[in-house]
Every structure is written in C-alpha cells, then in structure tokens.
Nucleic acid binder design. Structure first.
Length: 457
RNA sequence: GGCCCUAUCGUCUAGCUGGUCUAGGACACUGCGUUCUCAGCGCAGGAACUCGGGUUCAAAUCCCGAUGGGGCUACCA
C-alpha cells in the first residue's frame, strides 16, 4: 500500500522568481501525482548560499498557490518527512556523507577553501537508470570524475542532497528538466553506493526561446509573474505550458487544471524541445478570456491598459469611458503581447485627432452630398433617445432611416465614422455612438459639427 | 573538444506495435465572402516526413551512419 503510493516533488532553488520552465516542471509533477492519486511535495533547495535570494522561497510558494498547484507537503506543511528546506537538513547530509566516508566510498579533499567531501565514482562498467519516456539510460563510467558531495562550507551539493532527500522522502518519480540528464550517472552511482532502490526518472524536454536555446533570463521574459502582470490569465498560462512537451493525443487544446489531471499521463510526454511561442499563448489566452468572463475589476489586462493609457493620455484619460470601450479593444487585440501597439487605435475616444476633410469623402461622392448626409444623420441622432440603444439596435435604426431616404450606406456611414473617430480605421460608427451615448452624448454632436465645418470650408 | 539527448508544415504536434498517409489537427500566414473602414465571423488555400545507406513485397514509421538542433561539462541548481 505504502510502496505503491506515488510521490513526486518539485525542488526549486530560491534564487529568484519562478520561471516558465520551473512552472512546467512543477505542473507535470503535480499532474502526475494527482492523476495517480499520489502526493506532490515541495522541497526548497537552498544549498547555494551565494545565489540565495531573500524572499524567494515565499514567492515560490505563493506562485504555486496562485496556480493552484498545492503541495501536500512542504515548508509550511510539515509531516514526518520534513523539514522540507535543505538548509535545515544539514545534519542528515553530514550523516550520510560520513557513512560513505566510513565505507571508503568517499574521501576528503583539502583546499584553500577548506575541507570538502568527494564521492568516489566507479570508473569501469556502465551507470544506468530508467527514464520513463526515454527508456534505459546508459553511461560509460570510464570518463566519470569524482563529484563534490559536501562543500567546504558544510552545505551539500545539489546532486547529493537530491538523492538523500528523494530517498528519505520516499519520492517514487523524479520528474525534472532535461538539463539534468547528464548528471544521471552520479545519481545512479549514489543510489548504488547506498544500496537504495532508484526512483523512476522522467526528463522533460527543454522549453526553448525563438533562437532554439534553453529559455533563460537573458533571453527575455521568463518569470511567470511577468506574464501574469502583462495580463495573461493563469489558466491560459498553465494550459499553454502543459502543451509544451505533452499532448493529449486528441485535437482538444483547451484544458483546465482538472482536465489536465484527468488526461495526464507520462506516455504522452514528448522527448524533443519545444519553442515557447507567444502567438499560441495569445490564442489560448483569448479562449480562456471568452470562457472565464473575468469581471473588469479583476482583469489584469484591463488594469495594464489603463496604466498605459494614463501614462500616454494624461488628463484626457477617463476610466469610466475606457470601461465602455474595453470590449472593442478585446476584439481587436491578439492578446497581451500586442496590447501596447494596438492601444493607439483607441486614443480617438479620448481626444479627436486632427484629420483632413478629404478623409470624410466616400469614394467619388461629392462634398455637398457627404455634408448633407452628415446633416441628415445628425438630425436623426438629435431626435433619437440614444441612451436606449445598443450598437446593434442603433445599426438597425440608422440603416432603416438611410434606406427610407434612399441614401447609400457607404456615403453616409463612412463619413459618420470618420467624423467620430478622425481615423481611416476604427470600430463601427454604431459602436462609437453607443459608447458616447453612455458616457457623454454631446461629444457625438460636437464631432459631427466639426466634420460639417470642415466640409463647409 | 568530450559525454549525452533529440530530429514530421514557420510554431506546437498527431502518426512511429511498418501498408488505411496523395501525412491529420491547432496557431500563424495568404485569398475570398460578409461589410462604411479595422476587427470579428464564415469558407478556401499554401506549407513538413533532414540526408544517405540498409531490412522488407511495402518505411514518416525498424536498423546503421552522416548532418542539423539542444543540454551538460562548477565546492550552481
């Protein structure tokens, strides 16, 4: 019973914000454990004092919680396997290193830094371990070097602490990034030196940047927090990241965490690296946006858009107005990645840009005709109770009026839209009018008057 | 350099117990339609089995090699 319980772990080192690759590793460990009815453990590997960052542990825990990847055991959830922070387990590593020393499987090494412990690697034969997606891994021992176990500061090195902890925490499956593949022989030999049964391993394919290099800090945004701040939904991020290195073998692409738990299996994990493609992330984000219908006050994308507009428009920016415009923005952006560049298309709502009278002219229609069409529309708008209409109703009403008068849609609607937006491209005049009708109806008429003036000049 | 992993459209991938694959889907891209413009929506289209040897009646699928890409090569993780 106890033997068969699946236990996985996520073992980040607290050196900064959780990054995309880390989140994916955590996710896969979590998914596999939950799919198997097992447990997911969080262990903090703070064995490098030089790289340790204050607050990073708390941040890591918080981020995992935000994504609902709740650990069953971890720093704040102690159980008999704790502590879960390696710096609090120094005695354990020391004890095991002494055992190896006593058995002549390790030795001391003196240097200016102090006294460290090195492991005696076997130099003959092969080291092997089982990787559930790659099969049997075999390495020739003849060119192995003796790795450090305990540094001169008394802290264990990653490889050693990992093996000790995975063993003592009864981890059954070690799911980690491919970058650890080449240290496999050390693991294998350590397990053998102790006479312990090896866990099953899974090495996940790397997540690559557009240059096909391992995603790294210098290549741009890697912190999960950055993407959240930019306005990506956590559901979308998780969904997208799950599809990097795993796929359900069906054509379905949208998965929530519960769906992923249900569908996940190691047989569906891929072997080759996957490029982090922001375009696809945007697509998945759009899908989740539709699905979730986030209320405005919780929408980070909206919040970010407000910030940007405030910055650029200053006094002219109005949040209540922008709330009315927001659905139009959402329809016109691919996602958080192009929000910034698309925003200028909506500045006209806050301040009418200057434009030339020519822009009002539809095809070969005469200036006079355009002017009279605008006047006609202005009159109609004047007598209508605009606040009662949404864009769709407005369209019906206005088109009906135009038809009655025998006025073509193009020669009336084009100038109407231009006079309201001052731009060649914009949302439809009906959408614009509906927005202003809710916000400040006089804006409609002053803009129309301005256009009519331009045509009279 | 050495060791290791990997290899299907631009991207993520299905297919890999060999024939049903004239290689499927999604994103992206292009075109057409709807239409006052943009967006949206609908429809259509271009786009890949890295190469060379085998094995076999038959290979994207199996084997070998080359090449490409990547990772590791610390008293970092």
């Amino acid at each position: 019973m106890k033997r068969s319980m699946v236990r996985t772990r996520f073992a980040p080192s607290p050196t900064g914000l959780l990054h995309v690759g880390g989140l994916r590793t955590a996710l896969f460990n979590f998914l596999f454990a939950k799919n198997q009815g097992g447990q997911f453990i969080l262990r903090i590997e703070d064995t490098d004092q030089k790289r340790f960052l204050e607050g990073a542990t708390e941040n890591l825990i918080k981020t995992l919680q935000d994504f609902r990847l709740f650990p069953d055991e971890g720093p704040d959830l102690n159980s008999k396997f704790g502590p879960y922070i390696q710096s609090e387990r120094l005695g354990i590593y020391k004890k095991y290193s002494e055992q190896l020393l006593a058995e002549d499987k390790a030795y001391y090494e003196e240097s200016e830094a102090g006294r460290a412990v090195r492991f005696k690697m076997k130099k003959t034969g092969v080291s092997q371990m089982e990787d559930l997606v790659r099969g049997e891994l075999r390495f020739n021992n003849d060119l192995q070097k003796d790795p450090i176990l305990l540094k001169s500061d008394g802290f264990p090195v990653y490889n050693f602490a990992n093996v000790i902890d995975d063993y003592s925490m009864e981890i059954t499956h070690v799911i980690r990034g491919e970058e650890f593949l080449s240290s496999a022989p050390i693991y294998a030999q350590l397990y053998e030196a102790f006479g312990w049964q090896k866990p099953k391993f899974v090495h996940l394919p790397l997540i690559l940047d557009r240059e096909r290099k391992k995603l790294s800090k210098r290549a741009g945004d890697v912190a999960v927090e950055q993407y959240v701040k930019k306005g990506y939904l956590k559901e979308a991020l998780l969904n997208f990241i799950a599809l990097l290195g795993w796929n359900p073998k069906t054509t379905r692409e949208i998965f929530g965490l519960e769906d992923l738990i249900e569908e996940f299996s190691l047989e569906k994990v891929n072997k080759s690296g996957a490029i982090f493609d922001i375009t696809k992330l945007d697509f998945i984000n759009r899908e989740w946006q539709k699905k979730l219908q986030i209320p405005l006050q919780d929408d980070r994308l909206f919040a970010r858009a407000c910030e940007l507009l405030k910055e650029r428009l200053g006094e002219n920016f109005s949040r209540p107005l922008f709330e009315l415009i927001w659905p139009q923005v959402l329809e016109r952006i691919a996602g958080p990645s192009d929000l910034e560049e698309k925003l200028p298309e909506f500045y006209f709502y806050f301040a009418l840009p200057g434009y030339s009278a020519d822009l009002l002219i539809w095809k070969n229609t005469s200036k006079e005709k355009i002017k009279s069409n605008l006047q006609l529309l202005r009159d109609w708008l004047q007598q209508a109770s605009l606040a009662k209409y949404d864009a769709k109703r407005l369209e019906e009403k206005i088109k009906a009026t135009l038809a009655e008068r025998g006025v073509g849609t193009g020669e009336a609607l084009w100038p109407l839209r231009v006079s309201l937006s001052g731009q060649k491209n914009s949302p439809s005049p009906f959408e614009i009018i509906a927005v202003f009708a809710q916000f400040e109806e006089t804006e409609i008429f002053s803009r129309l008057d301005r256009a009519i003036d331009k045509l009279s000049a």
